[in-house]
């Protein structure tokens, strides 16, 4: 598919710079997340466009965390779009990955995907394929913001009422790395019961996405009830930006304001 990506991965693998490359491959008629370990075995490498641009993106960062936890001394390569790069920047600030042990191979998203995602930055800092296109402001958020409070509440109540409490939004999330999850905390959530409490369940997660969500949209894509979670978390990110001037994953030196309990450290 992308010769530029293949060439870069081949270079990284054959030089021994990386132990493996976490990317996507075409096999069994599907697009699968895959760890490439052999420089001569990259024929099936793809970037995740089966029927439409970026329609088969996978939580590669989440898989990377599994790999680096098991092999902390190894360096891995990984396919990144703008969102994935933001994810790795944020994960490094939370000490979940070592940026010195990651080789990113970037691709810029096409306009079509940037529009579908309403992505503010649909490209990583450096990329080997694709063309940089401008960020898109979130119309979905603006639309809901025009509603009166009651209508807005009704809208979300209706959306949340479709939830089957599969925890898929959390399970697919490349930023959900906590050992203990609030959504499994009996003090907050009635675990083992359906339907979920509305809006407690969803707002608990939304609050936890504040300063954490990198707007990849995998949660919305994984939701069997098509709840527009991405729109909700975009709004949460806007609030954090407005209140603290912080957007997750844009500046590696900046930690999430919600990292600090009881005010900034001295």
């Amino acid at each position: 598919m992308s010769e530029q990506v293949k060439n870069r991965v081949k270079e990284l693998l054959s030089s021994g710079k990386i132990k493996g490359f976490l990317g996507l491959c075409s096999r069994n008629g599907h697009i699968a997340p895959h760890l490439f370990v052999n420089a001569d075995d990259l024929d099936n490498l793809v970037v995740g466009d089966k029927l439409a641009a970026g329609d088969s993106r996978y939580p590669l960062n989440r898989q990377l965390i599994n790999l680096v936890r098991a092999y902390p001394d190894e360096t891995f390569g990984i396919l990144v779009r703008g969102c994935d790069e933001r994810g790795l920047t944020a994960l490094a600030s939370w000490n979940q990955v070592d940026p010195n042990k990651i080789e990113m191979v970037g691709i810029a998203c096409p306009r079509e995907l940037a529009l579908a995602c309403e992505c503010l930055k649909p490209y990583p800092e450096s990329f080997v394929d694709g063309e940089k296109c401008e960020g898109v402001s979130p119309e979905s958020v603006a639309r809901i913001d025009t509603l009166q409070v009651k209508e807005r509440f009704d809208h979300w109540y209706h959306e949340f009422s479709k939830c089957i409490k599969c925890y898929g939004c959390r399970d697919i999330c490349p930023m959900c790395f906590c050992n203990e999850c609030s959504l499994e905390n009996n003090e907050l959530i009635r675990t083992g019961e359906i339907p979920p409490e509305i809006p407690t369940f969803h707002l608990t997660r939304a609050v936890h996405m504040a300063g954490r969500c990198i707007d990849c949209g995998l949660c919305s894509e994984a939701c069997p009830a098509d709840i527009p979670l991405r729109t909700l978390y975009k709004k949460v990110a806007d609030i954090i930006d407005k209140q603290y001037g912080f957007r997750t994953g844009y500046d590696g030196a900046q930690k999430s304001p919600l990292n600090f309990l009881g005010g900034l450290p001295e």
């Binding site: 699968a32 089966k50 996978y58 939701c223 069997p224």
Partner: peptide
């Protein structure tokens, strides 16, 4: 990891 290209579940579980 749910398979996104599966026509059955389309990346959902």
């Amino acid at each position: 990891i749910p398979c996104k290209t599966s026509p059955i579940n389309e990346g959902k579980l």
